[in-house]
Design a protein around this nucleic acid. Sequence first.
RNA 1: GGCCCCAUCGUCUAGUCAGGCCUAGGACACUGGAUUUUCAUUCCAGCAACGGGGGUUCGAAUCCCCCUGGGGUCACCA
Length: 538
Amino acid sequence: MIRTRFAPSPTGYMHIGGMRTALFCWLWARRQGGCFVLRIDDTDEKRNLRDALPPILDAFRWLGLDWDEGPDVGGPHGPYFQSERGERYRAAVQQLLESGKAYRDFEPAEETARQRQEAERARRPWISSRLSCELSEREIEEKLAAGEPHVVRFLIPRERTVQVTDLVRGEVRWDAALMPDPVIARADGSPLYNLATVVDDAQMNITHVIRAEEHLSNTPVQVLLYEALGYPVPQFAHLPFVAAPSSKRKLSKRDIGRYRGQKEFRKLFELGDAVLPRTGHDPSDDRLSPVMVAFYRDVGFLPAGLLNALVRLGWSLDDETEYLSLQEMVNSFHLDRVVKGAAGFDPDKLLNYQAHWMSRLSEEQRISGCRRFLLAAGLLDEDDAAIAERIGPVVNLLGDRLRVFGDILSADEFFVADDAVTYDEKAFQKRVVAPDQAVDLLRSLKQRLEACAPFDAPTLQRLLETFVQENGIRFGMIAPALRVCLTGRPQGPDLTESMALLGRDSCLTRLDRALGRAESIRADSSVPDRTAAAEGDC
RNA sequence: GGCCCCAUCGUCUAGUCAGGCCUAGGACACUGGAUUUUCAUUCCAGCAACGGGGGUUCGAAUCCCCCUGGGGUCACCA
């Protein structure tokens, strides 16, 4: 029975790279009909678990990655919090001490650090002095009785060569003679990562340790620990890390500030800036940056879109398959096909996967997704049936323009009051204010609209065509201007469909308002800039 | 610096283990065109890569060596 685990430390956020690692662990377990364990590495974390853990579990739940054992669900190998497993680590340390595979090191930390620096300066590898190993049993007992502080170090068998057959990297070997004796228990007796991980993975019967590449250098120590404790050594698979766009550097929370200015990340940050503030979130919160899973949820991505992007970072099914549902991933995932090189996270490609999965949604699914965002932005009054019923038609009208659910907010002209339309200033100037005939044309068109019946798209379309013909103008002279007046925007979905949706009353009211606005602007500007007049060709 | 890992279009990748089917395939991005009376879609076309040098071989992206470049890690963090 295959068992994999993901062991996050509670940090209060779920990193996109960590999520990819978790996805691969999960897929491997599911693919093999095994178990996926979630374990919380909260050794020595002073953080508040109650605040720091939920965001991580939420990320898993949102993406639909369930766990067979771990927080909330328990399991036969618990507890699943390292902070509750202290006894087991103490027992392991005791066992190593008694079998002579570890020793108490009384050397002051400063002294050890000094030796390390000296070795570094002399450009030679540093290994432990092992001075404390010279101590007689009596001396040790005396020091213990005197309460002298000490750590416990694992005694590296220096004659060994450690070799592992990594499932993605193949054979990797290390010379143990070059390895310092790692501390496995602090002065206060608490365990360190390498020890705790080995004890947990072994006791939880983890068969495949799938983790990010940065752990590769921990592997030899851990292998030696497995052996010293008499545990079977699991299989290892070290995944290449997720790199920042167009780079080979690890995607990092610390670099968020720099990412903000990068062109590769621009679309994502723009999306965040457009959606997050309007739905009660703070876009400057690092926990809601494109490096974190929560960002994608709160901006309106689909789990399928993010998942698809993540799985293709370092893995491919064959030479052509790009789009995979979670079920298809489960059916076809294999560690054999994980690549070795770091993969740069590509926002453009992510957007493309997202668009693909969005297009496969049913109308109802799209509507309910958008409703959440309209509600969160306060644009939807559930009591106003007329507005509520408008969501469906708007969503349909928007079509492919709706890439993420948050995009619905950029069509807010269909949900705001007629006197709350905000205008794209540049477009308003260019299409309505600057052209000499624009205002007169619009005024004349308004009269036709008043009489237009029925007020539906085909009729409006004919009306516009006739209007254009009669006035001997081009479509581009009137359509863009009309659009700006009605929606405030320079472009958007089909104009007459939009008008029909808005309804006659709204159209007329908005037209009036815009016309009044244009006139007062023209009156204000003593030197009208005619050169800016549109050679409208829309 | 020590140790370890990695190296195909701008990006994600196929091809490498079992050398010839590779004048290196797909996708995203980009560019041009068609459709759409705007935008978005859709369709067609184009651009574009085996880091360098030595071997081995009839033949190398694929095997070997060296170099270069990039990265990770070196805690009483995880």
